[in-house]
Computed example of a mutant assay.
Amino acid sequence: MEQANVTNGVGNYTESCPSIDEFRNQVYSTSYSLITVLGFVGNGFALLVLFRTYREGSPFHVYMINLAMSDLLCVMTLPLRVLYYVRKGQWEQGDFLCRISSYFLYVNLYCSIYFMTAMSVTRFLAIVFPVQNLRLVTVGRARLVCLGIWIFSSAASSPFLMSGQSYDKVTNKTKCFEPPQHSSSRLPKLEALNYFSLVIGFVLPFLVILLCYAGIVRTLLSRTPAARRQQNSASKAIRMIVIVLLTFLVSFMPYHIQRTIHLNFLSRKSSCAEQTSMHKSVVVTLCLAASNSCFDPMLYFFSGEGFRNRLSSLRQTMRNSTLHRVSKQKPTMILESRENHNLDAS
């Protein structure tokens, strides 16, 4: 096991710190493998249903498609990370793929946050301002919003393209996906980037979502019991609130809090115990951040606008297509059977 000499903040002596590479390699490879399978199957199936029923388009439908595409883009790069950690931290895929893999993870992270915010605002307008919603929220405007989210998230995440693979002289390995070291010259830039993404990419969207959900709950509670029973939008809204808040609390919040603490931690002296716990928390929270791709299919199925109806419609369409194909084949089969019978008789 690798050792690292670290200066303790209390005195001037150094102590040998055990590496967490074994823990990191096991957790990352297992977690990313599971996220890849669940994310690919869930989002791939959702995209199939959404694209096959595109004629029933709505603004919410547009956001769901873009969210699923963002998730698929992310999970397609995770096998490269799995390969890296299975090989005990040896990167052999080249500098370009190292940069792209890191970049797409963060593009997905912030696209997911913004698409969930847009979906929450759309649901808020539909419930709280139903009349104005018909005029303000259209498919064309939803597409423009999605385009803006893609451009902004891609541009804001571009600094992650600046850092690629590196060579570690201690382990004699080519590295990728490695966090910054203590007193690194990159720390000031990383801290500035972190605070920007923390405020713009997490805090503000989360506040918007909380305000939207407060307005939705207040409107639903102010309705009469009879009105609440008649409208299906109430149950959809409640399910959406639960799933989005669960995603933020499990995936996004721990990661952003821990990342901020970690960058501040790197700029000061620390003991081995502090370093070990901090590095392990980096591993756990990054896995949780990547797992947002597994939560989104729940959002489509349980709160998506008519998603289950779209699924039923797709099944019916496929069933009708199969029956139509079989019915066309039957006369041909009967004719061939008669011809064979006549040949046998002659």
Rank of each mutant, 00 (worst) to 15 (best):
V244E: 07
Q258Y: 10
R259T: 12
T77V: 07
A214N: 13
S291Q: 04
V49P: 03
V283P: 01
S251M: 08
D21Y: 01
E15A: 02
R315E: 10
A290Y: 02
N108D: 07
E305D: 15
R186K: 14
T171R: 11
N66R: 05
N320S: 10
S166V: 06
Y85F: 13
Y32P: 00
M162A: 12
T7M: 09
F104D: 05
T138Y: 03
M253H: 08
G148W: 02
C111K: 04
I151T: 12
E336I: 07
F104L: 12
F40W: 00
G164V: 06
L288G: 03
R229Y: 15
Q132L: 07
T14F: 09
N8E: 02
Y13M: 04
G306R: 07
V282P: 08
N108V: 01
F129E: 14
V137A: 01
L193W: 06
P130A: 06
Y167V: 08
S251H: 09
A156N: 06
H182G: 11
I200C: 11
L210F: 05
V170S: 11
E339I: 14
C17V: 02
E274T: 06
S166M: 10
I65P: 03
L220I: 13
S346W: 14
A155H: 06
F160Q: 09
R229C: 13
K169S: 15
C98Y: 00
F129R: 14
L249Q: 13
Y213W: 05
V217L: 14
N172R: 14
L193T: 10
L263S: 04
V145W: 04
R319Y: 10
S271F: 11
A214F: 14
A155R: 01
V128G: 03
L47D: 03
R141N: 06
I257L: 15
P130V: 05
L136M: 14
L299N: 04
G164Y: 02
Q165N: 08
P297H: 01
L72G: 01
D95I: 03
T285F: 06
L190I: 02
S313R: 11
P297W: 00
L311S: 08
T7H: 10
N340C: 12
R259Q: 14
L144E: 10
C212I: 08
N292S: 15
V27Y: 06
F265K: 06
L299T: 04
F302L: 12
